[in-house]
Design a protein around this nucleic acid. Structure first.
Lengths: 165, 165
DNA sequence: ATGTATGCAAACCATTTGCAATGAC
DNA sequence: GTCATTGCAAATGGTTTGCATACAT
C-alpha cells in the first residue's frame, strides 16, 4: 500500500525531530502519528481520543495534546481554528494543497483545491519570514444556506404583508 | 476628520441590518461599533472590555459578546483565531486588504499587504459560494526568531562537543 | 404595555497543569 | 538509576448561559 510508505516517511521525520530535540521515542507518540496518518481530512481532539481509545494503544488526553504540540512544531500536522470552539487538525503530508471554504451560516467547512503559490515578487517581500505553511480561509455563505435564506426571506415577506393587513 | 465619515457609514449599515433583523437600536450597540472603528489593528475582548470600561458608556462582557456576534453577522467586524487561546477581531472597513504572518515561535502577528484578489477562473469555480471575506494566514518563523534559533543552535553544538569530550 | 437587551454571576467545556507512577535512555 | 513522559484529576480561563431588571419600541 502507498499510504504505508508515507507513514514510514513521516515516522522517520518524526524520529529525526525527536533526536534533535532530545525527546524520547515513546510508543504513544508513534501510535498517535500513525493513527493521524491513517486517514485524510480534518479531525478534532475528542474524535482522535475516542478513536484511539478503541485502538490497540490507548492514550490519555494529556499525552494527545503533548504529542500534537510536537507534531505541530515539526510540521507534520496543521492546526485550524475555523470559528467553532474546538480546534481542527489535519495531517500536513499526503493532502493536496487546499484552501478552506467556511460557511458562516451553517459552519460547514469544505476543501477547495487551489495550487496558486506565491509569485516571485511576493516571495521576495516575504524573504525574511521563513514560511512553514499557509492557510487560506474563505468565509461566506454556502449554496445550501443561500437557498435556505431565500426561502426564509420569502416567508418573512409574506408574514409582514399579512400582519400589515 | 475622515474617520468620522467612515464611522457614520458603518453606523448606517449597522442600522439597516438591525432594522432588517428587527433588533433594537440600543446605545450600547452603537457605542461598541463606534469604539471599534476608533482604531485600526487587532483587538481582543478583554482589551475592548477594559477600554470601554473607562469610556463614557460602560458595557458588560455579555453585551460585548452579543454585539460582536451581530457585527460579525453583518460583516462589519472580522474574527481571527491565530492559534493563541483568545480570539482576535478587527474592523472590516478602513483597513487595507492584508494577509497575516504568524510566527509559530513567538506568536507575533504581522500584517502583510497583499491585494491579489481571485482570478476569474477561481471566481468561476467559487460561483456557488457567496464570499463575504477571506483570511490568509501564513505560518512560519519571523526573522527575529530565526536569529534567536541560530544563536541557540550554536550554543547546543558547543555544549554537545564539550560533553562528548 | 410588551418583550428584547442588558448586567451579573454561575456554568460550560476545551485545554492546561500538578503530581505520583511509569518506563525510555 | 535518572529524569522525561504518561495518566489522572483538578484547575484554568475564554466564552456562554440563565435570570431578574431595564428600556427600546
Amino acid at each position: 500500500m502507498d499510504n504505508n510508505k508515507l507513514k514510514d516517511q513521516v515516522k522517520e521525520e518524526f524520529i529525526t525531530y525527536l533526536n534533535i530535540k532530545k525527546h524520547r521515542r515513546t510508543p504513544e507518540r508513534f501510535a498517535i502519528l500513525d493513527h493521524i496518518y491513517s486517514a485524510k481530512g480534518h479531525f478534532d481532539m475528542e474524535s482522535l481520543y475516542k478513536e484511539m481509545s478503541e485502538s490497540s494503544l490507548r492514550v490519555s488526553r494529556a499525552t494527545l495534546y503533548n504529542t500534537i504540540d510536537l507534531l505541530l512544531e515539526c510540521g507534520l500536522v496543521i492546526k485550524h481554528q475555523f470559528g467553532a470552539n474546538v480546534s481542527q487538525y489535519e495531517r500536513a503530508y499526503g493532502n493536496e494543497n487546499h484552501d478552506h471554504l467556511i460557511c458562516t451560516s451553517c459552519g460547514e467547512v469544505k476543501e477547495y483545491k487551489n495550487s496558486n503559490l506565491f509569485t516571485p515578487s511576493q516571495q521576495k517581500r516575504l524573504q525574511r519570514f521563513k514560511i512553514s505553511y499557509y492557510s487560506m480561509y474563505i468565509y461566506g455563505i454556502c449554496s445550501k444556506c443561500q437557498k435556505k435564506n431565500q426561502v426564509q426571506e420569502k416567508k418573512n415577506k409574506t408574514n409582514s404583508l399579512t400582519t400589515k393587513k
